[in-house]
Design a protein around this nucleic acid. Structure first.
Length: 550
RNA sequence: GCGCCAGUAGCUCAGUAGGAUAGAGCAACAGCCUUCUAAGCUGUGGGUCAGGGGUUCGAAUCCCUUCUGGCGUGCCA
């Protein structure tokens, strides 16, 4: 809010003085408080192109800024920085705006209704969701919420790979477990099959529903039946896990359905028409190296079946056909070799590959008592999302999952997530919210809390901590834009921790409600009420609760 | 081998428009509740920003290079 204002003033002053500003200047918050509330490097950056010494340019600009009431003090410092101190009256005005915006603060039409496709989780329908999926769910959903808040038109989509090899193996695994139930002795459970307990449960459930009847079906029909059954059950299981996590998808797209609609043939013909395919060793290849990939890729295997890539490419093309102008995929850490071929296909088909944006989430390591918990997919020993949620609350889990940059490994400390003190940032932040609620409640009971807020009250706020709190809140609108554009939800957790910390310190230092100073009390109540709102909005965007009592 | 990602305090991490003296939290130690929630606050110590070169008024941040770790490198999905 303020940053943009200062930026505009600088540009205006430059133009008024007849200087050019071809190079980008910055308005920043100095990390040393002695340098004021904001500072700009404009004079240093633009000195050269205007053939003037930075310090002289700075002096001239400062002369212009002296006329502006919003600035209490403007100074030159160091090699040509211009430091601004914002007038309290300006902060009061901003607080009043925040107050008026209420629970809609920082909402905007910034995104101009751009249709953005957010594809995330998209886990294989062959087992329960694991913790990397949980990370993806928290990440994608938070990004969705922020984009929505900023006036984009985002859609959350889950792509189900319910066709191909792995699904056959799933059906076979269920069949083996069924045979086990009926007393057949298995030599050894095949290495490639799915070993998880859930396969047994699926078999048991199916057995109790249909019993021996299954084995009376012809082989082919039976496998189809097992496939449909298992896929449907697992889909429901996954949807249920996500729901417990507070994540719902706007759309689920099935690979099988896509295939039935004939998109595979379409894509193959598009690529052939573009002259990008050839035959070698009984297989059909895509010459992706021509478009930046490091090797050519098989489209149709020598046995006549199709590779995963073809329907997936078709799927991405449907996103474009549906009018999305930005396709964001959130992938696990093991897929990055896959991107060049997707991008290559976009280029081959003359689509703008910059519309396709892929975010990689790095792996999640679970720690307990300082020990890393080992996970093994093969042995069915994965820690599932449900396992995690049975131990850790939804709030804690979501917070921890978004609290790191996407491309950094995430160490999830189970003990820490369970702690209920300041070591655990979730509680630290939620506690600030609960504390404020408690104060407001007491103020209401004591009849200090006014029915409606009065703008004049704000002028009672003169402490540096109070102005600093207002300043911090005004950062939210710009922060959210940064989060949406850089796809970096973690920055929201940094903001919330800072704001909560500032409040806790303020609370300890000053008494908010004091019978002897009614107006001051009311002004402070107005301030903390807005802090509460800003915290609640941030929590809402992260998908975690804003408790009124703890 | 090649490709992608990462390396900041003992630990987990900020430092996102290239800015001024690199910051938090935890852990360690010393304190604060007759007063609105102590799930909180205050203070102390702690750094070769992995190493080296370069770009420039100025680099943790950009470029090159070396080292270390993770992942990828299927006619798997």
């Amino acid at each position: 809010m303020i940053r943009q204002f200062i930026y505009d003033q600088v540009i205006e002053a430059l133009e008024h003085l007849g200087y050019t500003h071809d190079k980008e200047i910055i308005i920043e918050i100095p990390n040393n408080k002695e340098f004021g509330d904001f500072s700009t490097n404009a004079a240093m950056i633009l000195g050269k192109e205007n053939k003037i010494a930075p310090k002289i340019l700075a002096e001239q600009l400062i002369k212009e800024f002296k006329k502006i009431k919003a600035f209490k003090k403007v100074e030159i410092a160091g090699p040509g920085f211009i430091n601004f101190v914002i007038a309290p009256a300006q902060y009061f005005e901003l607080l009043w705006q925040i107050n008026k915006a209420d629970m809609e603060f920082a909402q905007s039409d910034y995104g101009k209704n751009e249709k953005v496709m957010l594809e995330f989780v998209s886990a294989n329908p062959t087992g329960p969701l694991n913790i990397v999926s949980a990370r993806a769910a928290a990440f994608g959903d938070t990004l969705y919420r922020v984009m929505k808040w900023l006036g984009y038109d985002p859609l959350r989509e889950f792509y189900i790979n319910d066709a191909g090899n792995q699904v056959d193996i799933l059906a076979e695994s269920v069949e083996l477990r069924l045979r086990e139930i009926h007393g057949e002795k298995l030599e050894e459970f095949p290495f490639e099959a799915y070993h998880g307990e859930y396969v047994r449960h699926l078999a048991q459930k199916l057995n109790s529903q249909e019993g021996i009847r299954i084995f009376m079906m012809p082989e082919k029909e039976r496998m189809e039946h097992l496939k449909d059954y298992a896929l449907n059950e697992i889909h429901l299981m996954q949807e249920n896990s996500l729901e417990k996590f507070g994540v719902s998808f706007d759309s689920w797209v099935s690979e099988k359905t896509l295939r039935m609609e004939g998109v595979v043939e379409e894509v193959l013909s598009y690529l052939a028409e573009a002259d990008c395919t050839y035959e070698k060793e009984d297989a059909i290849w895509f010459c992706s190296t021509k478009f930046g990939d490091d090797k050519d890729r098989v489209l149709m295997k020598s046995d006549g079946s199709i590779t995963y890539f073809v329907p997936d490419l078709a799927y991405h093309l449907t996103k474009l056909q549906r009018g999305f102008t930005k396709l964001i995929d959130v992938f696990g850490p093991d897929h990055h070799g896959y991107v060049p071929r997707l991008k290559a296909a976009f280029k081959a088909l003359k689509y703008d590959d910059s519309m396709l944006e892929i975010i990689f989430l790095q792996q999640v390591n679970l720690f307990e008592s300082g020990e890393r918990i080992k996970m093994s997919k093969r042995a069915g020993k994965i820690v599932t999302m449900d396992d995690l949620l049975s131990v850790v609350s939804k709030d804690s889990a979501r917070y921890f999952f978004i609290a790191r940059k996407a491309n950094a490994h995430l160490n999830f400390d189970l003990e820490l997530a369970l702690k209920k003190n300041s070591e655990n940032p979730v509680y630290y932040c939620q506690y600030a919210h609960a504390r404020i609620c408690s104060i407001l409640k007491k103020a209401k009971k004591d009849k200090v809390l006014p029915k409606t807020w009065n703008k004049e009250l704000i002028t009672k706020l003169t402490k540096t901590e109070e102005l600093a709190l207002i300043k911090k809140m005004t950062e939210l609108p710009e922060l959210l834009i940064g989060i949406a554009e850089q796809r970096e939800p973690y920055r929201l957790t940094v903001f919330v921790e800072e704001l909560a910390g500032m409040f806790h310190r303020y609370y300890t230092k000053y008494q908010i409600v004091n019978d002897k100073h009614k107006e001051l009390s009311q002004a402070r109540l107005l301030l903390i009420n807005n802090i509460k709102n800003v915290l609640a909005i941030s929590f809402e965007l992260m998908g975690i609760s804003a408790p009124e009592k703890m």
